[in-house]
């Protein structure tokens, strides 16, 4: 699957990290880093992360 985070929207809330820690993380400076092509087995987690992002910045493409 393909994940895109709109970094213009993202405000580093980190909610996605709680929902899908295998895909999203915050670096030492507190900024978002993520895997853009996670395994399909993680789809539920990633959908949950997209749901809980306060800025609705996470898009799942295919």
């Amino acid at each position: 699957m393909k994940v895109v985070v709109d970094m213009n929207k993202c405000q580093d809330h980190g909610q996605c990290v709680f929902a899908a820690p295998d895909v999203f993380s915050l670096d030492d400076a507190g900024h978002l880093a993520y895997v853009s092509d996670p395994d399909d087995a993680l789809r539920d987690e990633v959908e949950e992360a997209a749901d809980v992002c306060p800025l609705q910045a996470i898009r799942i493409e295919a």
Binding site: D12, H13, G14, V17, F18, L26, A29, G30, H31
Partner: peptide, 12 residues
């Protein structure tokens, strides 16, 4: 700021 929010996340 961001550092304190990250600190809160650890207490979560």
């Amino acid at each position: 700021g961001q550092a304190m929010t990250a600190s809160a996340a650890r207490y979560r």
